[in-house]
Write a protein that binds this DNA or RNA. Structure first.
Length: 501
RNA sequence: AGCGGGGUGGGCUAGCCAGGUCUAUGCCGCAGGGCUCAUAACCCUGAGAUCGGUCGUUCAAAUCGACCCCCCGCUACCA
């Protein structure tokens, strides 16, 4: 049987600043989805990267006193380090300044042109010479550029347009087909907007800037950054004839923040249609993180440096918080207080403590050897927990297939509570009841597997403490529902997995 | 302004689509108790909400409808 493939991408990040918590959030979510899909046996390809061709980089570099390339390299490196530091399992990291990308970007542009979807016309708008970009009404304060305090000039220039209007019908059909955009409310936003405003042709080249990818047949023009950026999803696979492209395209999931939905759900499909490239299956839109109730904003200082967090907290503590506390489809708030409470109360106090008390009980009562159960099949409480072990991967799977990653993790926390209650009720330290501990140690194994996508390194640690062969991921998701730790098995010396912060 | 989402005990939250089993779920916090295998952990009990407001549909509404008040999101280059 052919293994099912699964290609997931994140948005690529602007490199005009260092990564913040929002960037991390998206990567962690993508990582969880990717790891989970691997665990259920799919052949996963996970891509992330950086968007480096924006003209804005030039300005940001100047402010930092660096050459553009130097500036971009420095920041891009930081994003790559972010992935490493937080255990993100991306298979590739594309930078849009790489040759492999630029040539595909140009190829796509050429294809659109050859298909008659690109034409030359003139674009007029309010241009700020300071920013070197066009401004819309709402960008301005009192008719002036908020940054330079000057009034932008009304100018007109030649540029290339993409016949986006031509694709209004097919794009609308695509979106209205169920589940292209997840969740539903993001779909409604887009559908409403297309129906209300229709699709207008889009200016896809800029001539007043010096940083960017040249329009191949007219190098005075640069390719509009968004067109260039979107192409990363195929360029990274080696479009048009790369092996990975043939294997993994179309994407199963483009994971993005809600602010760039339009580009992914409307413009990107239109570009692909123009080039005759198959369309992605889903655009998955997550919410934003707020900091203490405020929007992330570099200028207002409401930004959290993920690397700073690592100085105080462990990777898995942060991952746990992000996955559990931020409702995936909504905005969620970050505060250190909430992080500490969630981790101490739930991850450490509930999940971690259950693991630890189970392991130490086996160690102290049975010398580290899993006891032979007597007749748990006849005990109602035991059967209930066994049933929960079987159920947990099932219910989590339902949630995860719908990308409810926060809710799926809540199931884990609830399961741990149930385990603690069970232990409390059974009091094996007093009754010496081997059945209870036999089931508990299996619950620990279940936890190790179901936590693997969320907390990969802790999961491995639990696995080692159980002294089991290989790694949790070798056994697959469904194995989480089994009682696979056998009587007589020797566990390792108990150690604390999750420490209070 | 238009379109969309939401307002549930001190905080967060489930339930709402398919009305009754909701005398409303869970977590945090708070008060009391238990236990002591465990990372002052875990377990139990309790206080605390007429489910934003008004009106309506119905035998029955947190759940459906209308109107009103408040919050938030989207409206072409911000994860």
């Amino acid at each position: 049987m052919k293994q099912e493939k699964f290609y997931i991408t994140t948005a690529i990040d602007y490199v005009n600043a260092y990564p913040h918590l929002g960037h991390l959030y998206e990567k962690v979510c993508a990582d969880i989805i990717a790891r989970w899909n691997r665990l259920v046996g799919r052949d996963v390809y996970f891509l992330t990267g950086t968007d480096e061709n924006a003209a804005k980089n030039e300005r940001a570099a100047k402010e930092a006193g660096l050459e553009v390339k130097e500036f971009i390299d420095r920041n891009a490196k930081r994003f790559q380090e972010l992935c490493k530091a937080f255990n993100i399992s991306n298979d590739d990291f594309i930078r849009t300044t790489e040759e492999r990308h630029r040539k595909v970007s140009q190829l796509i542009f050429t294809k659109m042109f050859e298909n008659g979807d690109i034409y030359k016309s003139s674009y007029s708008g309010l241009y700020c010479y300071g920013c070197e970009e066009y401004k819309t009404e709402k960008d301005l304060a009192d008719g002036k550029c908020p940054e330079h305090g000057t009034e932008p000039e009304h100018i007109e220039e030649e540029c290339y347009f993409f016949r986006l209007s031509k694709y209004e019908k097919p794009v609308l059909e695509l979106i209205e087909r169920n589940q292209f955009i997840i969740p539903e409310k993001r779909k409604q936003e887009i559908v409403a907007r297309i129906k209300a405003e229709g699709l207008k042709d889009l200016a896809v080249s800029r001539s007043r800037i010096s940083w960017g990818v040249n329009v191949p047949f007219d190098p005075k023009h640069k390719i509009y950054v968004w067109v260039d950026a979107l192409v990363n999803y195929v360029s990274a696979l080696g479009y048009p004839d790369g092996e990975k492209y043939r294997k993994y395209w179309p994407a199963d999931v483009h994971l993005i923040g809600k602010g760039i939905n339009w580009f992914h759900s409307v413009i990107w499909p239109a570009i692909l249609l123009s080039c005759g490239i198959p369309l992605p299956k889903h655009v998955l839109v997550h919410g934003y993180i707020t900091i203490g109730g405020e929007k992330l904003s570099k200028s207002r200082g409401t930004s959290v440096d993920p690397f700073k967090l690592l100085e105080k907290y462990e990777v898995d503590a942060v991952r746990y918080f992000l996955a559990r506390d931020i409702p995936f489809f909504e905005d969620g708030d970050f505060t250190e207080k909430a992080l500490v409470e969630r981790v101490n109360g739930e991850l450490v106090g509930n999940i971690g403590n259950f693991i630890h008390r189970t392991l130490t009980l086996i160690w102290n009562l049975y010398g580290g050897q899993v006891p032979e159960p007597r007749n748990y099949e006849k005990d109602e409480e035991c059967l209930k927990l066994v049933e929960s072990i079987r159920r947990l991967p099932r219910v989590m799977r339902e949630k995860l297939e719908n990308y409810e990653i926060d809710r799926a993790l809540k199931e884990v926390a609830d399961f741990a509570i149930q385990c603690n209650r069970f232990l409390q009720a059974k009091e094996p330290w007093r009754t010496r009841d081997p059945d209870a501990l036999f089931i508990c140690v299996n619950s620990v194994r279940t936890l190790a597997i179901v936590l693997q996508p969320y907390l990969p390194s802790s999961s491995e640690k639990i696995w080692k403490l159980l002294n089991l062969e290989g790694l949790p991921e070798d056994y697959g998701w469904n194995s989480a529902g089994e009682l696979a730790v056998k009587p007589g098995h020797r566990i390792g010396r108990p150690e604390i997995v999750f420490r209070k912060i």
